Amino acid sequence: MGVKHELELPANLEPMTRHPKVPGPGEPMRVHHSMCFGCGLDAPVGLRLNVTAGEDFCVTATMPVVDWMQGGPGVIHGGILSAAFDEVMGNASILIGVPVVTVNLEIDYAKPIPLGSTLRFTAEVLGKSGRKVYVRSQAYLDGFEAPVAAAYGIFVEINLRKHFEGYKEGAVKAPQG
């Protein structure tokens, strides 16, 4: 069993440039929020993904697969893996200086991922068209021989201030209305 499909990209992709203020290749990506479930160091429970900037529009990441992530007996829960892909691909979008949120995420699960292992991710921004950013990612166990899962995502560029207006740092409130 392997990765099944590719993301179909639109014909009108725009030229991309790496943002001048992002970390250089080999440097850690910054935590975007201390309480983030994906990368935050202060979140009581979280993935604690360690994301590193790569060349061009790529990032790599590692994540230990620990006991609380269990789904089926002895293996990671698919939703946890989905959240990890979401975080890694969102981090890749930072390389082009674009804050994004997820609008579509597709995952091919190729192989069970055992507790106690370490996942290694790669992610690459494939292109941008208007507000949409197209990203792909793969997850590996030990080395990079064959992916155990792959994901494709479409993210949409947001205005951070408007998007999170009405929310306070560290507090989660439901929108009124």
Results as ranks from 00 to 15, higher is better:
Arg136Asp: 10
Val65Glu: 15
Ala53Pro: 02
Leu119Asp: 04
His163Met: 14
Lys111Leu: 10
Leu47Lys: 08
Ala83Phe: 07
Gln176Asn: 12
Leu160His: 06
Leu9Pro: 05
Lys21Arg: 11
Gly2Met: 04
Thr118Met: 09
Lys173Pro: 10
Glu8Asn: 07
Val22Trp: 02
Pro20Asp: 01
Pro25Trp: 01
Leu141Ser: 03
Thr52Met: 11
Gly40Ala: 03
Trp68Glu: 07
Gly26Pro: 03
Ala53Gly: 05
Pro99Ala: 07
Met69Cys: 05
Ala92Val: 09
Leu9Arg: 06
Arg48Phe: 01
Asp142Glu: 15
Ser117Met: 10
Tyr167Thr: 14
Lys21Asp: 15
Val66Asp: 14
Ser137Gly: 15
Lys21Phe: 02
Ala146Ile: 05
His77Gly: 07
Asn104Gln: 15
Glu55Lys: 07
His5Thr: 15
Val22Phe: 01
Gln176Thr: 13
Asn91Phe: 06
Pro20Leu: 02
Leu7Asp: 08
Ala123Tyr: 02
Ser34Asn: 03
Asp142Trp: 02
Pro112Lys: 15
Val156Phe: 03
Asp67Met: 11
Ile80Leu: 08
Ala53His: 09
Thr60Trp: 11
Asn50Phe: 11
Arg30Val: 00
Gly170Leu: 11
Glu14Pro: 01
Lys162Ser: 15
Asn104Leu: 09
Ala174Pro: 03
Asn12Met: 09
Pro175Glu: 05
Pro73Asp: 02
Glu8Leu: 06
His33Tyr: 12
Ala149Glu: 00
Gly153His: 02
Gly78Tyr: 13
Ser129Gly: 04
Leu115Glu: 09
Lys111Pro: 08
Thr122Ile: 13
Lys21Ile: 08
Gly116Tyr: 12
Arg48Gly: 06
Gly71Ala: 00
Val125Asn: 12
Asp67Gly: 02
Val75Lys: 12
Ala84His: 00
Phe164Trp: 06
Ala92Glu: 02
Cys36Pro: 05
Ser93Asn: 15
Glu124Lys: 03
Phe121Thr: 06
Tyr109Thr: 05
His33Ile: 11
Tyr109Phe: 15
Asp108Thr: 15
Thr17Gly: 05
Val156Tyr: 03
Ile80Cys: 05
Thr60His: 10
Asp42Met: 08
Asn12Lys: 00
Val125Ala: 09
Val103Arg: 14
Arg120Pro: 01
Asn50Gln: 12
Phe121Asp: 01
Val156Met: 04
Ile96Gly: 05
Val135Asn: 07
Asp56Cys: 02
Thr62Met: 09
Met16Thr: 01
Ser34Tyr: 12
Phe57Pro: 01
Phe155Ala: 04
Gly54His: 13
Pro15Glu: 13
Glu165Pro: 02
Pro112Gly: 13
Cys58Ala: 10
Met35Asp: 14
Tyr152Leu: 01
Glu145Asp: 05
Phe37Thr: 08
Asn159Val: 09
Val135Cys: 04
Gln176Gly: 08
Ala123Pro: 08
Gly79Glu: 07
Val65Tyr: 06
Ala11Gly: 00
Pro175Gly: 10
Arg136Ile: 14
Val75Asn: 12
Ala110Arg: 04
Ala174Glu: 12
His77Trp: 04
Gly74Val: 11
Lys4Asn: 13
Leu126Met: 05
Ile76His: 02
Glu27Asp: 09
Glu124Asn: 08
Ala151Pro: 12
Arg30Gln: 14
Pro23Val: 13
Val75Cys: 07
Ser82Arg: 03
Lys128Pro: 01
Pro147Val: 15
Gly38Ser: 10
Ala139Tyr: 10
Lys168Trp: 09
Tyr167Ile: 10
Gly54Trp: 13
Met29Cys: 01
His5Ser: 11
Val172Asp: 04
Gly24Glu: 12
Leu95Pro: 00
Gly40Val: 09
